[in-house]
């Protein structure tokens, strides 16, 4: 285990029910989740999870509803206790923390953003943002100062004295994000943080999170249903099914080599314009005009440039060498023909 690993889950399993240990023994002997529920009335949440979460990176956890995503992320700050296994944060097993140490751990080291925001309706935006600081007994004056900086960071200046109910969903989640950032925790847990927002706002928030992450380098664990979101935000993606990890890899590798059918079905509906880059599409030819595309540019970001240009556009490699040209028609084809797009992907070396 290298020292760039922030969180390490070792063989973590969770069964919900009064006799969890025996139920887990049955699972270990090969009983399925459905059988366990029917015969014993216990619910399998997670089984045999081994996962390394890298420092300063964003790890995305994906899976269908009920696959155990929320259960997994709630283990990381012990809102849920595992039935068996170890959870190491900075090399220390957090399951050994007593109640007091656990509170300190939650106050200083790890914070969380919630799907339905979970803001305090009776407190103002600023009071919500500094909630964690006040819980940690930071003097109110200092807390407010730090809070205002966070309010500014998420672009809510001027709203600090409003109540959450007076804000739109997107703004409320900015408050949730500011509240999580305010404690300066190194680890940020985000359970479907953007799922309740409508698409435009959602994209804004994703971009904002990327900006913030580029500056702060938190260790982020992000849960989503949405592969586009996962690919946009995740340095690594972990895919869960029925409480079992099916694949953990970079987005590109998962697109190229889905480990099984389940993962394959996730990948099928991906928005390729955001994933595919111009480089692999470049073909020999002479560009018209001076506009150039970068090989690592996504097709989506190339659209506006294509629209403005006449004829083929040159594609440059990172070192500035001309790789070839692409035409609008080629790009359209790459997007429409799934099979061909896939082969382009597999052929690329990104």
């Amino acid at each position: 285990m290298g020292n760039n690993i922030k969180i390490y889950l070792e063989n973590v399993s969770k069964v919900f029910g009064p006799d969890a240990l025996n139920a887990l023994a049955l699972i270990d002997k090969g009983m399925t989740k459905t059988e366990l529920l029917e015969k014993k009335g216990h619910v399998l949440g997670l089984h045999g999870i081994n996962l390394e979460i890298e420092t300063g990176k964003t790890t995305v956890i994906m899976g269908l509803s009920g696959s155990g995503k929320s259960t997994l992320i709630r283990h990381l700050n012990r809102l849920i206790e595992p039935t068996s296994g170890r959870i190491l944060v900075d090399g220390e097993d957090i399951l050994n923390l007593n109640a007091l140490e656990l509170r300190q751990f939650r106050r200083k080291k790890i914070s969380m953003v919630f799907q339905k925001f979970a803001l305090l309706p009776h407190k103002t935006v600023l009071e919500n943002v500094i909630y964690g600081l006040l819980i940690d007994k930071v003097p109110p004056h200092a807390a407010k100062e730090r809070g205002m900086a966070q309010v500014e960071l998420v672009g809510l200046s001027g709203f600090e004295n409003n109540f959450p109910g007076q804000l739109s969903g997107g703004m409320q989640q900015r408050v949730g994000l500011a509240r999580a950032l305010a404690t300066d925790a190194e680890i940020l847990l985000m359970d479907e943080a953007f799922s309740a927002l409508d698409p435009l706002i959602r994209h804004d928030m994703q971009m904002q999170l990327r900006e913030i992450q580029a500056r702060l380098h938190k260790t982020i664990v992000f849960i989503t249903h949405d592969l586009d979101e996962a690919l946009l935000l995740g340095d690594k993606i972990a895919i869960l099914k029925d409480g079992i990890l099916r694949q953990v890899d970079t987005g590109m590798n998962i697109l190229k080599n889905p480990a099984d059918d389940y993962v394959g079905r996730f990948v099928r509906d991906v928005n390729r314009a955001r994933i595919l880059t111009c480089g692999p599409l470049a073909q020999p030819g002479t560009p018209t005009g001076d506009t150039r595309l970068n090989a690592e540019q996504t097709l989506e970001s190339a659209f506006p440039i294509m629209a403005a240009a006449q004829g083929p556009i040159g594609v440059l490699a990172n070192d500035g060498a001309l790789l070839g040209v692409v035409t609008a028609r080629q790009i359209m084809e790459a997007l429409i023909q799934q099979d061909r797009a896939k082969s382009t992907l597999v052929g690329s070396d990104i």
Partner: peptide, 24 residues
Amino acid sequence: EIVEASRAFGASPMQVLTTVQAPL
């Protein structure tokens, strides 16, 4: 979820009571 948020930020049972449960 609000109670959970409070606990996630390290609130003690008493702090959960006074800052979240009692007012709500």
